[in-house]
Amino acid sequence: MEKRNEIVMYLLFGVLTTVINILCYVFLREYLHIKYILSTTIAWLISVVFAFLTNKKYVFKSNFTELNAVIQEFFSFTFFRVVSLGMDLGIMVVLVEIIKIDDFIAKIAANIVVVIMNYIVSKYVVFRTKRVNE
């Protein structure tokens, strides 16, 4: 039951992270008139920080509070989110450009892979209960 709750919480905060990303982008683009690339980057950064905080506290319930441990978790989390962004883009290129799948269908497929990968990496690498150097 606990594993099911963890997955539900992960999906819930994933949806909230997506909403925050979109709202930040719209605010930056439409109200502050920041160019779309910079708006996308800032919105992505804000949503990654939100995802880190909520995943740490509510999803994987990491108890590390020492600054070095939190920094290690944050950089590990961010690193793997950058990797997943690259995976997302790579899958999109392969499916749309090479296999010729509709981009909307490709985006859904890519996001399924990315969400699963992010969950596994967060659970078993970023927020694991014991650190190697402890």
Rank of each mutant, 00 (worst) to 15 (best):
Lys123Asp: 04
Lys35Gln: 13
Gln72Met: 12
Lys123Ser: 08
Ser76Met: 02
Leu38Val: 10
Thr54Gln: 04
Tyr25Phe: 15
Arg128Pro: 09
Met9Thr: 07
Leu45His: 11
Val115Met: 11
Phe74Tyr: 11
Asn133Lys: 14
Val113Arg: 03
Asp102Lys: 01
Glu30Gly: 07
Ser76Ile: 02
Met92Phe: 09
Ala51Pro: 01
Leu23Glu: 15
Ile34Cys: 11
Glu66Phe: 00
Leu12Asn: 10
Val114Gly: 05
Cys24Asp: 12
Met92Glu: 04
Lys35Gly: 11
Glu97Tyr: 03
Phe50His: 10
Ala109Lys: 12
Glu66Ser: 01
Phe60Cys: 00
Thr65Lys: 00
Glu66Val: 01
Leu89Ala: 07
Asn55Trp: 02
Met1Lys: 08
Val125Pro: 11
Thr78Leu: 13
Ile105Gln: 05
Thr129Cys: 15
Ser47Val: 08
Gln72Gly: 08
Leu85Asn: 06
Lys35Glu: 14
Met9Leu: 13
Met117Glu: 15
Tyr119Phe: 09
Trp44Glu: 03
Val70Cys: 00
Tyr58His: 05
Ala69Ser: 01
Asn118Pro: 12
Thr129Ile: 08
Ile42Glu: 04
Tyr10Gly: 05
Phe80Gln: 04
Gln72Trp: 06
Leu16Tyr: 13
Ile98Asp: 00
Val114Phe: 04
Met9Glu: 09
Val8Gly: 13
Asn63Tyr: 00
Phe50Arg: 04
Ile105Asn: 11
Gln72Ser: 05
Phe27Asn: 15
Val19Pro: 12
Thr65Gly: 03
Arg4Thr: 11
Phe52Lys: 07
Asn111Glu: 12
Glu97Leu: 00
Asn118Gly: 10
Glu66Met: 00
Tyr119Asp: 02
Val83Gly: 01
Ile105Ser: 15
Phe75Tyr: 07
Leu89Val: 06
Thr41Phe: 01
Val70Arg: 00
Phe77Ala: 07
Phe52Cys: 06
Leu23Phe: 15
Asp102Thr: 05
Asn118Ile: 03
Val93Leu: 04
Phe27Asp: 14
Phe104Ser: 07
Met87Phe: 04
Val132Asn: 14
Ala43Asp: 03
Ser47Gln: 06
Leu16Asp: 12
Asn133Met: 10
Tyr10Phe: 10
Thr18Trp: 09
Gly14Val: 13
Gly14Lys: 08
Met1Tyr: 12
Trp44Tyr: 03
Ala43Ser: 13
Asn21Arg: 09
Phe74Gln: 06
Cys24Val: 13
Leu38Tyr: 11
Val70Asp: 02
Thr65Ile: 00
Leu85Met: 09
His33Pro: 03
Val83His: 01
His33Glu: 11
Phe127Ser: 07
Gly86Tyr: 03
Tyr58Trp: 09
Tyr25Trp: 14
Ser122Asn: 11
Val82Phe: 05
Arg128Phe: 08
Phe50Cys: 13
Tyr31Lys: 13
Val82Asn: 03
